[in-house]
Computed example of a mutant assay.
Amino acid sequence: MTPAARVQAAIELLDQIIEGARNKGAPADRLISAYFKQRRYAGSKDRRAVRDLVYRAIRLCGEVPYDGRSAMLAVATEDASLVPLFDGSEHGPAKIGGGEMAAFIGTAPDWLMEKLKASGITGKEAEALLGRASLDVRVNTLKAARDTIELPEEGERLAAPNALRFPSGTQVEQWREYRDGLVEIQDHASQWVCEAVGAKAGETVIDLCAGAGGKTLALAAQTGNGASLIACDTDKRRLGNLAPRAARAGAQVDHTVLLNPKVEREALAPWIGKADRVLVDAPCSGSGTWRRQPEGRWRLDQAELKRLTQLQDHVLDIGAELVKPGGTLAFVTCSVLDDEGANRIEAFLERHKGWSSTKVPIPLGKARGQGTRLSPFHDDTDGFFVALLALEC
């Protein structure tokens, strides 16, 4: 592909990603993968260059652009070397017209910027949400130890007990050690969140929103397979991925429970009031993961945020019913918005008597309300909010 053809390919992909954002369709990474499957002639350098252009545009444009061309014109306003590539050639983009407008450059839509500001996320802290993320792994202590494991590349030791960091793009999933379950990809903040849960051998621990089970596997390793682990979710496809992951990791999960939305308590009846610890890793906007999925801010609107906060209250209420007296409820979102963090804990404590917040025992993050928030700017991690709630005996 010529440089101009790469720009045109990025424009075509951005058109698809913009449509997906508006209509809640497929995410950017899936659309990019499908695009190149249909264009086998594009080499690895071409794919890498086009992908880079696409994500430069996504990171740069705060609002959903009108179209892919306006998004790439925004990139060209920041990188003058791209302007001559709008050359009208056979496979390149049309020449830039006299009144053409580039897309709006910014961090996020105005309404979302107000939410960030109200949450104390401004200036460089807001800009850091769209930076480049490293790739972190957790050494699986059921099979290996950080001090002795030998990997194809040497990673940076992080503060979490089993964390290693590698440059973005490191092909960890191609490593034999990954295929054999010695390491799992998991952000440094996420590893600390699992440490904060404080699960111990002999306890009953419920991962209420387990998804594909990344945190479930971390809890299994943390307890040396000594806890009774119950992994639950409403997504059958994602929950179905847990069994093969657990087998690869050597992790013991006693029960996987598929939940039906709005009638979750029926499936959870055997554990009501019996859990020592419940982890609620609640569905959220993912504002803390924009470094990895920057089009997430294009896909979020005020109605969706309201729906998510109501869902977070709902799963918190369910989680509270599962905890036995003296037990702990951990609430986590990969969001930096107070609507999905401190505000949810305040609302929970107003609804539920006999509960109190406790200190989150991790060395990273800053206090936010009655919990702790980690952020890319201050902690060089994904953005997370975590709070611990204790039920009195």
Rank of each mutant, 00 (worst) to 15 (best):
residue 190 S to E: 12
residue 34 A to I: 06
residue 378 H to R: 13
residue 333 T to D: 06
residue 288 G to Q: 06
residue 15 D to K: 04
residue 225 N to K: 13
residue 367 A to G: 10
residue 25 G to S: 14
residue 270 P to V: 15
residue 50 V to W: 10
residue 177 E to D: 02
residue 319 G to D: 09
residue 214 G to R: 00
residue 294 P to I: 13
residue 190 S to N: 12
residue 388 L to P: 03
residue 256 T to S: 11
residue 60 L to T: 06
residue 269 A to T: 14
residue 80 A to Q: 12
residue 3 P to C: 03
residue 104 F to V: 02
residue 74 A to P: 10
residue 126 A to H: 06
residue 101 M to C: 08
residue 23 N to S: 11
residue 171 Q to N: 05
residue 299 R to M: 10
residue 233 D to I: 12
residue 357 S to Y: 11
residue 85 L to K: 07
residue 390 A to V: 14
residue 226 G to W: 03
residue 320 A to C: 10
residue 357 S to H: 11
residue 244 P to D: 03
residue 323 V to F: 02
residue 149 I to Y: 12
residue 348 F to C: 05
residue 202 G to K: 07
residue 392 E to S: 12
residue 41 Y to I: 15
residue 178 Y to G: 00
residue 81 S to E: 14
residue 179 R to A: 15
residue 346 E to H: 14
residue 214 G to V: 02
residue 342 A to V: 08
residue 311 L to T: 07
residue 337 L to R: 05
residue 300 L to C: 04
residue 208 L to G: 06
residue 209 C to E: 03
residue 173 E to R: 06
residue 298 W to V: 15
residue 258 L to M: 03
residue 379 D to R: 09
residue 54 V to Y: 09
residue 65 P to Q: 06
residue 284 C to F: 08
residue 319 G to C: 08
residue 382 D to N: 09
residue 58 I to V: 15
residue 97 G to H: 04
residue 28 A to E: 05
residue 173 E to A: 09
residue 184 E to G: 14
residue 79 D to A: 05
residue 371 G to F: 02
residue 110 D to W: 02
residue 376 P to Q: 13
residue 63 E to G: 13
residue 370 Q to E: 07
residue 152 P to F: 01
residue 317 D to M: 15
residue 3 P to K: 04
residue 233 D to P: 04
residue 58 I to T: 14
residue 353 K to C: 05
residue 173 E to S: 07
residue 287 S to I: 05
residue 312 Q to Y: 14
residue 259 L to G: 00
residue 273 G to V: 12
residue 243 A to S: 04
residue 159 A to C: 05
residue 90 E to L: 06
residue 231 A to D: 00
residue 44 S to V: 07
residue 309 T to G: 00
residue 329 L to S: 02
residue 163 A to N: 01
residue 326 G to V: 07
residue 67 D to G: 13
residue 269 A to I: 10
residue 128 A to P: 05
residue 99 G to C: 03
residue 380 D to Y: 01
residue 96 I to T: 14
residue 288 G to E: 08
residue 36 F to S: 02
residue 282 A to N: 10
residue 286 G to S: 06
residue 139 V to H: 01
residue 375 S to L: 05
residue 88 G to Y: 08
residue 164 L to K: 02
residue 209 C to N: 02
residue 386 V to M: 12
residue 159 A to P: 01
residue 59 R to F: 11
residue 76 A to V: 14
residue 14 L to A: 09
residue 182 L to V: 12
residue 310 Q to D: 14
residue 303 A to F: 12
residue 337 L to Y: 03
residue 376 P to S: 10
residue 377 F to L: 11
residue 386 V to S: 13
residue 297 R to H: 12
residue 71 A to R: 01
